[in-house]
Design a binder for these strands. Sequence first.
DNA 1: CCCTTGACGAGCA
DNA 2: CTGCTCGCCAAGG
Length: 116
Amino acid sequence: MDSAEFHAAVYETVRLIPAQKVTSYGHIAKLIGMPNHSRHVGQALKFLDPAADPPVPWYRVVSSSGAISSRGPGTNGARIQGDALTAEGVEVTVTPSGERKVDFSAFGWFPAPGTI
DNA sequence: CCCTTGACGAGCA
DNA sequence: CTGCTCGCCAAGG
């Protein structure tokens, strides 16, 4: 599997995430058969064209702890993602330190590989 | 070819 | 809860 196929597989899988559900980078990696490439799932989403057609609901992908990565101070990516999820009806908790988190027990989507 | 970076994950103190 | 270590691997300098 080359880089282009990897990206395609990631986008394809992310589109399968139901509305009002979230999953993790690591689980996306498992679903496409590359459990050790969680970092590259993030890369694929990072390179994604926001105007892709059909759209890719990248905002439904968070870290394994349920937290939304900050992307560093000065960037508003985390806030955008949190807002997008909130707008869809997903409960996003904001910790005192400003961290946004999602409750997997209520909104998690983790199908076993091969069952989708 | 070596070194550093990451929208990551799991384990441990 | 926070912080640190190690494993992972493609990309870019």
